[in-house]
Simulated scan of single mutants.
Amino acid sequence: MMYARRWAQTWLAIGFLWFLMAIALAPSNKIYQQGLVLFLWLPTLALLWSARGVLAELWRSQRGLCLSVSLLLLWSALSLSWATGEEPGREFKRLLYIAFFLLFFPLLANADYERLIKLMQWGGIGLGVASAISIYQFYGVRGFPWHYRLLGVGEVSHPILGAYVITAAIVWMLHFMPKQRWFQALWALSLLSLGAFLLLCQSRGAALALLITLVAMPLWRRDRWSCVIALGTVATAIAGFVFMYAQITGRGTSYRPEIFHSSLQMIAEHPWTGLGLGSFYKVMAVGMPFDHTHNMFTHIAIELGIPGMLLWLAVWLCVLREIWRVRATTIGKGLMGLWLFSTLAMQFDAASLTGTPRAEWFISWLPVGLAMALVWMHARRPGCDKISGSI
Rank of each mutant, 00 (worst) to 15 (best):
R5W: 11
R6H: 09
W7R: 14
W11L: 04
W11R: 05
L12G: 03
I14H: 09
F16P: 07
F19A: 04
M21E: 07
A24W: 00
P27H: 08
N29S: 08
Q33S: 05
V37H: 12
V37P: 05
T44G: 03
W49T: 11
G53Y: 10
G53N: 09
A56R: 07
W59L: 12
C66W: 01
S68C: 10
V69K: 05
L71Y: 02
L71V: 03
L71R: 00
L72Q: 05
L73E: 06
W75K: 01
S76T: 00
S79A: 05
S79Y: 01
S79R: 11
L80S: 08
L80Q: 09
A83N: 11
A83V: 07
E87A: 15
P88S: 14
P88I: 12
G89Q: 13
Y97V: 10
Y97E: 13
I98N: 01
F105C: 02
F105P: 07
P106W: 06
P106N: 00
L108K: 00
R115E: 14
L116T: 00
G128S: 08
A130C: 01
I133D: 00
S134Q: 14
I135W: 13
Q137D: 13
F138R: 00
P145A: 12
W146C: 08
R149F: 09
L151G: 05
G154R: 07
S157H: 05
I160G: 03
L161K: 03
I166M: 01
A168E: 00
A169Q: 13
I170Q: 07
M173S: 01
W182P: 04
F183D: 08
F183E: 02
L189E: 02
L189V: 12
L194A: 04
S203K: 00
A206Y: 04
A209G: 03
A209F: 11
L210T: 03
L210V: 14
T213R: 13
L214F: 12
V215Y: 08
R221Y: 13
D223S: 04
R224N: 12
V228M: 15
G232L: 04
T233P: 04
T236D: 05
G240E: 08
G240K: 02
V242H: 07
M244P: 06
M244W: 12
P257K: 11
S263H: 12
S263Q: 02
I267T: 06
P271I: 04
T273W: 01
F280Q: 09
V286F: 13
P289T: 04
F290P: 07
H292V: 11
H292W: 10
M296L: 15
H299L: 06
H299W: 12
A301L: 06
A301N: 11
I306A: 01
P307L: 08
L311W: 12
A314S: 14
V315W: 03
C318N: 02
R321S: 13
R325K: 13
V326W: 10
V326F: 09
T330P: 01
I331W: 03
I331V: 11
G332M: 01
K333N: 11
M336W: 07
G337A: 03
S342Y: 06
T343H: 00
M346F: 09
F348L: 00
S352E: 15
T356E: 14
H378M: 06
R381E: 15
K386E: 14
